[in-house]
Nucleic acid binder design. Structure first.
Lengths: 335, 335
DNA sequence: CTGAAAGCGCTAACAG
DNA sequence: CTGTTAGCGCTTTCAG
């Protein structure tokens, strides 16, 4: 059988309370007994049961992570960065791909609660703040990453989406483009809204009139990006550049362009968003707006741990700057 | 406070034992009391504590998943497929990226054991079977996915790597290639060995002599694929095709070729392995050997759950067939 | 069919 | 400094 605290206590000739104290480095214990206990512990290869300790009100050292789809490189990278930091802090993370389905979100959250995770990090769209608010009400530590949700009081880490949209668009403008389209994944989502707002701001600043025909909505996948871009390019020969609100969509538009025998960047410039591994792999390499994924991941777990340990600190909102990564998918428009 | 089984019992005017029985659909309970209890349970929004139940010897409904790197698209897709099946079966999965570091593997395994996960799925290289054997000895259910380890008695799901190497190489041969190089990620790993064996078998079958100069080792990343391919192409102008043992390496090869002004597939044909999303995104789209990732994921969790529930069934070894996915990175060699 | 009671492994007062 | 003891929330005999 598994070795328990009783085995250690008996073997060491002390009480379980003593053993518990040396485990938790609490209470006053003589060097002597402490050493003896420690010795026995690793002689017997003892590993305290987190389950038992959790039952007495301690932590489970487990975090839940809700995201739309682990197979999406952006979220895989986010997950990895979170996992890394969590691991450093002695936490594990359980992954929950929701496919943006409210149903799955609910089921996962319910499961996570039953398992008494110490906190939940959310990277999903969470359409209805109701779910979220409920979590907050129940005092379950929650933190959002890469998703805004102004109406709810939780910790948040995200990139400055407005700034990102602005950077992307400005860069295109600097390169001489005037007919610039946007493809966004969904206008419901705050980040899309903000990126588009940044886009419009750049346009405005440059005195370029905003043309609603040039903004397209799709969901997020290469395929739908391709479709959206196809429609766009079909209708408007005039457009010389597109700002795709994520790399997947950017790649879709590259593919659509290629199918229409448009060369990139000569016939069409495109800039993406996220700077996932995909951006380095497409041809041409994608100029894109980088999110500081490593940093964001580390920060959310810092935040949520602070919340878990420290109690109710104020809800933080950390907005990190995006960065333009120039590769080869943008050039000056053809005359 | 959180509502417990006592609250339900009191409210329903029964004992906690009765409540427990209705939760576990065990024991004989009258329809009447059962319904009453159920009603109260969801009136009070009761959710049984997995932690408490686990302490009494029940399951934690949690699986550990060890893999090299979640940010690697292949493993992200594996993880996703495992997560999906696990979720269907009421299990959660905690992700552990080991970076193939023995150290991390050990730490993660230790953590997972402390948390009493019901089983561990391993997709990591696990160099030393010692760790693995220890797990088996401790009767912790273990299953391997996409990793062979003939020396240890555990459940295994993998693709027929030999067949995959054979398919890839044969296809190249059919297309008229004779000077075919291989880039593998590491010859220590069984799957690489097998793929190379398949490669050699195809060569042999076609009466093409095996040239050791044409096999290169690298680790697995686009960058190292690029380096390996660069060296290869530098030295041997003769080679007209390369079989890269995974998509990342294939992409590295494509990039190296491009840098040397070689056109793909005209100057150099390449076929990859895995059929990750990357294969659809590179230019040209990569002809590659597909692993049935969905299926593999579903099968490992089936296996490990059988092990968890059914006790010690025989160790299964499931070898799934790979499939050649033809895209555009292969053509006949230039005359 | 239902309930009382003894744990599961550990923590946290409270005594000594 | 160390031990006793009462739980944590749930499962599981064993009586009734």
């Amino acid at each position: 059988m598994k070795v328990t605290i009783y085995d250690i206590a008996k073997e060491a000739g002390v009480s379980i309370a003593t053993v518990s104290k040396v485990i938790n480095r609490g209470g006053r214990i003589s060097e002597k007994t402490r050493n003896k206990v420690i010795k026995i512990m690793d002689e017997l290869n003892y590993q305290p049961s987190v389950v038992a300790s959790a039952l007495t009100g301690k932590q489970t050292y487990t975090l839940g992570l809700l995201l739309p789809d682990l197979a999406n490189p952006f979220f895989a990278e986010i997950a990895r960065s979170i996992e890394d930091r969590a691991q450093e802090m002695g936490f594990n993370v359980v992954i929950c791909s929701t496919d943006n389905s409210l149903d799955k979100e609910e089921r996962y959250i319910s499961l996570l609660k039953q398992k008494s995770v110490d906190g939940i990090i959310i990277a999903t769209g969470v359409r209805n703040d109701a779910l979220l608010k409920e979590l907050v009400r129940q005092k379950l530590p929650v933190a959002l990453i890469a998703r805004d949700m102004p109406a709810v009081a939780v910790d948040i880490v995200l990139v400055d989406d407005f700034q990102g949209g602005y950077l992307a668009t400005s860069y295109l403008i600097q390169n001489g483009h005037k007919q610039i389209a946007v493809i966004a994944e969904d206008t419901e989502v705050m980040s899309s809204k903000e990126r588009i707002r940044g886009y419009r701001h750049a346009l405005e600043e440059a005195g370029i009139p905003f043309n609603p025909e040039l903004v397209r909505i799709s969901d997020f996948s290469v395929k739908s990006g391709k479709i959206a871009a196809g429609e766009l390019l079909q209708g408007l020969k005039a457009c010389t550049a597109v700002f795709a609100c994520n790399d997947l969509l950017a790649i879709g538009t590259i593919q659509a362009a290629r199918e229409m025998k448009l060369s990139i960047p000569d016939d069409l410039s495109v800039v993406g968003f996220d700077n996932t591994i995909l951006a380095t792999i497409v041809d041409p390499p994608l100029t894109t707006i980088a999110q500081p994924i490593q940093d964001m991941g580390a920060q959310v777990v810092n935040m949520i741990l602070r919340h878990i340990n420290g109690g109710h600190t104020m809800n933080q909102r950390m907005v990190l700057p995006p960065e333009l990564v120039i590769r080869s998918s943008v050039s000056r428009p053809r005359k």
